[in-house]
Nucleic acid binder design. Structure first.
Lengths: 122, 122
DNA sequence: CGGACGGTCAAGCGATCGCTTAAGTATCGG
DNA sequence: CCGATACTTAAGCGATCGCTTGACCGTCCG
């Protein structure tokens, strides 16, 4: 069972490769076999399988072999984990008060007006 | 300046390293100088700067040198781009098919008949 | 049965990654 | 002006990455 507590290292590393991202995009449109998944790419089949293993180890994809065909499908939990981490960082920065801190740190000289119309309260 | 249309490759690659993610987390709590940013880590200063360059090239961090101090701050746009891509894939998977597609593919053996019970969508 | 199909295993190779040390360059403090 | 501070640059080294080729195994079809 592809561990659910996979490290972010593996998730982001998996997503860092364009081939692997293209595979994920392909899999959002439905499950696919290995060779089916390999067709768009100009590389050998073992290379594709290696990418697939990276995705699987990261918990982004699950695959099951029936007969001689391995069928791969997306595992949205991995994606959700990555999205959650990013959102946490982004909101930690945008949330409390820090945009102002940035402004102050940049130019503490002419603080005549401190009300920029930024921040559409997302 | 680091282009805003930076490739996802660089963004996810930058996020794939635990040291770099820790730096991002640190920067959500406010701007920091290079050596300040380096303090929590058991590595040499040049190593930290190299990580910083990766983050900056990915458009996740911006830095400005004043006097002999380089001050780094978070660039939320990069984070938002990454989050957007992930969300797009996740919703592309979860949206149109619901979970039914996944369920059918897992339990059913072929596409000839699709008359299993339907509507377990939560 | 025999061959094609779908995938797997193993070795290896060049490129990149993360990190190091050593030796700079600029600024600031006294 | 001199030393300390805050990086910066460059070279190098072992480990990992992405990909290849070649051999192999199990499954389906005629």
């Amino acid at each position: 069972m592809p561990n659910q507590g996979v490290a972010f290292d593996q998730i982001f590393q998996a997503l860092a490769d364009p081939t692997r991202r293209a595979m994920v995009e392909r899999l959002t449109r439905g499950p696919a076999s290995v060779s089916d998944l390999a067709k768009p790419f100009p590389m050998s089949l073992p290379a594709v399988v290696q990418h697939l293993q990276v995705l699987e180890l990261a918990g982004l994809v699950r695959s099951e072999k029936i007969g001689r065909v391995r069928t791969c499908r997306l595992e949205p939990d991995g994606l959700r984990r990555a999205e959650g981490w990013i959102a946490a960082q982004r909101t930690a920065w945008e949330g409390p008060l820090d945009r102002l801190g940035e402004f102050l740190a940049a130019g503490a000289d002419d603080s005549a007006h401190a009300d920029q119309q930024k921040g559409p309260a997302s």
